[in-house]
């Protein structure tokens, strides 16, 4: 029923280092983006970008980079710097949505300073840096909740390094858990449409609002609002009831997307909130599913 080719929207997701940075169920993020696009008749092509592959910014609409083992992070850091750096910078400056989780997040900051040995150089997209304070300092492990855009985002964190923000904006404020460094209550970092975060678990399945936000950003960037209104597809297929022409670019890009049945997603989200004692927030999360 979505099959009219001329109207089919297509997005291309570049998955950076799928073989090296795949430790914390990062596949869940990809599956979520793919399925949420497909249910709306948008084709999401996923292209793996391994070590040695160049990153041509005009070939992608969305980028994802996950976390991996320390042992596998060093060659990745080198490749990111030498092979993909320029392309990635260009993409980010051109407002491409980028999601970087855990190790990927650290690689997009200035540097990672291990307890012993030399610094690992990052790309410096986020004005932030990470320090591992040695085996005496406990890892930040556990369920984590942050507030983002007035809503909750839930996940699981497991990182030894502490990240400190310079001028970078945090993604959200920690409500429960550790966040960037267990000290200042910040979590993640944002630069233009690039989002770095320690939240996995996987992040996107239980946070459908954040997944849709990224998809919306990518659609907005690729097709622009005017293009979208000209498509021959009936608006209800992709869009919310309102005609996109009435929207301004400043609007929440998720309003472009047709809502899905996310009862299970929000229940899973609420279950985490509730076990952390955030009861009111859990009710609010479940209300979102009903409102959709």
């Amino acid at each position: 029923m979505h099959g009219r080719n001329e109207a089919r929207l297509t997005l291309t997701l570049g998955h950076l280092y799928p073989d090296q940075l795949n430790l914390y169920g990062d596949r869940g993020n990809i599956l979520t983006l793919k399925r949420r696009c497909e249910l709306r008749g948008i084709e999401l092509r996923v292209v793996g970008l391994g070590i040695g592959d160049a990153l041509a910014p005009d070939e992608y609409d969305l980028l994802f980079i996950g976390g991996g083992q320390d042992k596998e992070q060093a060659p990745v850091a080198q490749d990111l710097f030498e092979t993909k750096g320029i392309g990635l910078w260009a993409a980010i400056e051109d407002d491409m949505p980028v999601l970087a989780v855990c190790g990927g997040y650290q690689l997009l900051a200035h540097y990672y300073r291990p307890a012993e040995g030399p610094d690992m150089k990052g790309l410096g997209v986020f004005d932030a840096w990470t320090v591992h304070k040695g085996p005496r300092t406990p890892r930040c492990i556990g369920d984590v909740v942050i507030s983002w855009n007035g809503m909750t985002v839930v996940g699981f964190e497991n990182h030894g390094g502490r990240t400190y923000l310079g001028t970078a904006r945090p993604l959200g404020k920690v409500l429960k858990g550790h966040g960037n460094n267990a000290e200042d209550g910040t979590e993640g970092a944002v630069y233009r449409n690039a989002y770095g975060t320690y939240l996995h678990g996987s992040l996107l399945p239980k946070n459908p609002h954040f997944a849709d936000y990224l998809i919306g950003l990518a659609l907005q960037r690729k097709y622009g609002l005017r293009r979208l209104t000209n498509l021959s597809m009936p608006p209800g297929e992709i869009f919310n009831g309102s005609t996109p022409a009435q929207l301004t670019p400043a609007d929440d890009p998720t309003t472009l997307l047709r809502p899905l049945d996310d009862h299970l997603e929000w229940q899973a989200h609420a279950a985490i909130l509730e076990r952390l004692g955030l009861y009111e927030e859990a009710v609010a999360a479940l209300r979102r599913a009903e409102a959709a």
């Binding site: 914390y24 169920g25 990062d26 596949r27 869940g28 492990i141 699981f156 996995h200 996987s202």
Partner: peptide
């Protein structure tokens, strides 16, 4: 293990 993200793999 407290982290169940592995189910996505």
């Amino acid at each position: 293990g407290r982290d169940v993200s592995w189910i996505w793999d």
